[in-house]
Design a protein around this nucleic acid. Structure first.
Lengths: 203, 203, 203, 203
DNA sequence: AATGAATGAGGATTCATTCAT
DNA sequence: AATGAATGAATCCTCATTCAT
């Protein structure tokens, strides 16, 4: 009497493990996060873990994928927006919201340590490309309407937005005194100046 | 007649292992860099490795320490400089030069993945503090002479310089198309605007 | 449907490893008994070993514990016996029976070499205390009814019984010509004289 | 200009290492006593150690040999003594004096743990045989003059003296409350009764 | 003789993964 | 689907020993 596969239930279990993985990876690092510890956190047996994920690394990839999906959805929802510059800032806010999960910065560090794995490297590149492409579209659109500087290609400007946001995210994770709320205005200011170029007023 | 301990020789050997470690860590990640591989790269036996470093992790710490020493030396050499803003940019250039070692960005990623280890975490914090303190001194001095904005504390400005440089460094490591040479002007522009504040011309 | 944990099976496996350990420790000594050899003897994989015992040393402790349990059970079974002197001799016989396992003396030697480990030291002390306490009870009881000498405290007499039995056990292990069967009468005679005191007939 | 070998100096160095070995073996056990630790204790370099002893195990053998020599000398000095029973008791006293070195019992335990090594086993057997032969001579002589029991062979009586002394020595090392001074009278009484047989007065 | 840097064989232990139930 | 006992490959590290100086 084979139990009919319940996709709802399956997805829930999967998310439960992903959540536990995020927690334990952030707390102990990749090597320190034994599958046993993740199972304990998720309240499942080790056999169950491998029902849902073929390897430990694949759980990392799934977590990354979750993030990629979120990014994709963000840009899909803001496509064809009339104010492209605003979308860029909304994206920054969106990223900041992700950082509000204290496990996020820990997990980012964990993933950094895994770039030697080609699959991770590829996933990061894919994730990066989603954001880059989304931002490039906004920047191009804004350039066309003359709202931002035109002396730097859209691709480079997009990357620079990411440079600043990534640097910001890294510092949130490591430096104790660097507070997201306090620094947010300077973040927006920096990105704003970056997009408009120096010597332009951007209040 | 005991062979006199030759500190020169000892230091050379140590650097030889540190160099090999940097290479292999960057190439394979921490876990992937087996002590055997590091020894092979350094051309030594495994026993010799542990004669110089008590654990594999301690080699990472030694590499970090080497970097910390370099930073300390940089600021010591530029102390009491008459043009503090110039020192900040010199520091950025100095960091960029470090990044010219292609192993640097890989190693940074490796270390990120090890923050779960308290010793690594402490070493990173120490390294960070050296740079922060050095930059704060410059920024304060520049603020006093009115060369840069005064509406943001020296501490925050210093951290923001690091935000941008760290973000830049991270992108150099990951995004294939992000070229140090090409992007350097925009890096200086961004930091410049950051220090002077928006709406000020800083050509 | 989770396989129900079978404590029976677990206990059996554990005893199987304990038995193999006893064999290999006695044959090769502690250092010479590699975990690989013990696993081979037990017919299990190395992972299984560490599933049951956290360290190699803990296997030694488990073996000692098995012995301690046996001793405890012996005294529990003979508590409130009407003829306390007889219990002492039964205990000696009981110890002799243990020595009939040819691995016993080898294992005792192995453990002797491990007293530098506090855990071993403590286990031996505990084991010793079980026997001492059991014997003291018998000796005291026998003293009260005037069956044995009263000029030496029960504690010291108990220890002396152990001195003789330990010396006997040690010799069984080392000296080839020292045969348990042959020497048993002299063992009983010596202990008998010890308990009754010199100059007393104890046929 | 080869330094002439100074046998005096050589012997002194050797004893210095033997002494250090005894100390460290007793304190840390055989495996725990690294050659490095022994060298530190002796105040020499590791190279020097292996000038005097080809292997770590050979140091154990040398210590045992030192003991064997002492035993041989003891019996040589008491040969042809007119009161053989007295020699037996003198030997017991002699052994007790050895036990007054607190490192002795620890070292005995260490050696016990090494019986799996044939060389150690042989050395112990040799040491044992020296004592046995010496005691047998005394016992035989005493039997011939009717001073002690004749119903047990000299060989067995000699072994039994050793049983009791060994048991005594073992307990001195392990049981905290077992004091050499206090228990000495009972030791002599036990051996005395053993030699004369039960039911004989031996005040 | 004396030294200690260099060596590498050897071994305990970890942990992702499998699979019978 | 769920379980967890069993597995063994993989690796860090120890330490006796060698040898050039």
């Amino acid at each position: 009497m084979p139990r009919p596969i319940d996709p709802q239930r399956h997805r829930a279990r999967r998310l439960q493990i992903i959540d536990a993985g995020l927690t334990v990876f952030a707390r102990r690092g990749y090597a320190g996060a034994t599958t046993a510890a993740i199972c304990r956190e998720a309240g499942i047996g080790s056999g169950t873990f491998f029902h849902y994920f073929p390897t430990k690394l694949s759980l990392v990839l799934a977590i990354l994928d979750e993030g990629a999906t979120e990014s994709r959805e963000f840009f899909a929802a803001h496509e064809e927006h009339s104010e492209p510059v605003r979308v860029v800032f909304d994206w920054v806010r969106h990223e900041l919201r992700d950082l509000s999960d204290p496990r996020a910065s820990g997990f980012i560090a964990v993933v950094s340590g895994l770039v030697a794995h080609e699959e991770i490297s590829a996933a990061l590149a894919a994730q990066d490309e989603i954001n880059r492409a989304g931002l490039v579209a906004c920047v191009e659109s804004a350039q066309e309407s003359g709202q931002i500087r035109g002396d730097v290609t859209a691709g480079r400007l997009a990357e620079w937005v990411m440079v600043v946001v990534d640097g910001f995210a890294g510092r949130v994770g490591s430096a104790g005194a660097f507070d997201v709320e306090t620094e947010q205005p300077l973040l927006f200011e920096t990105i704003s100046t970056l997009l408009t170029g120096p010597g332009k007023d951007n209040g």
